[in-house]
């Protein structure tokens, strides 16, 4: 189950399928909260024309699996799915999806917010933006 619910992939993913995978775990689920990160066309006043993500194979997947395990242990939630894309991503395309299922909405909201913040903090994934002035590795994310 973990293999399909937590993954890093080049291909686009289906938000619907991921929600369904998380939701199908239990009939006791009353709420699913999702965070979807997508490619923006601006950063710090610069026009962005393309994005590319790189990861540390093995370590990045392990960190995402660890985030899911800790979320399941620390929040009153039933399931969590995390999908992150790597490689070239066009403006407007999806980058990351976190889907959290719980009996009641508040637990899912809190776990989802925690998970995306933790993902940005501990997961060895890097973004390179192509702007009109060239390519730059992003080193600070809000």
């Amino acid at each position: 189950m973990t293999n399909t619910l937590v993954r890093i992939q080049k291909e686009p993913f289906s938000v619907e399928e991921t929600i369904e995978a998380v939701k199908s775990v239990s009939k006791g689920i009353g709420a699913v909260v999702t965070f979807l990160g997508c490619g923006r066309d601006f950063s710090k006043g610069q026009k962005i024309t393309g994005l590319e993500f790189e990861h540390y194979p093995g370590m990045a997947e392990a960190k995402l699996a660890d985030i899911r395990s800790r979320a399941l242990a620390d929040f009153d939630i039933i399931e969590m799915g995390i999908v992150h894309r790597i490689g070239e991503i066009a403006i407007g395309e999806e980058i990351v999806l976190i889907a959290v299922a719980s009996a009641h909405r508040n637990d899912a909201f809190m776990a989802c917010e925690w998970a995306i913040t933790e993902l940005k903090r501990v997961t060895p994934i890097w973004k390179r933006e192509t702007t009109t002035k060239g390519e730059v590795w992003v080193s600070d994310t809000p």
Binding site: Y56, H84, I116, K120, T123, W137
Partner: peptide, 10 residues
């Protein structure tokens, strides 16, 4: 050993 610049995933 991995040398890891500040992360920018998500």
């Amino acid at each position: 050993v991995g040398f890891l610049p500040p992360f920018s995933g998500g």
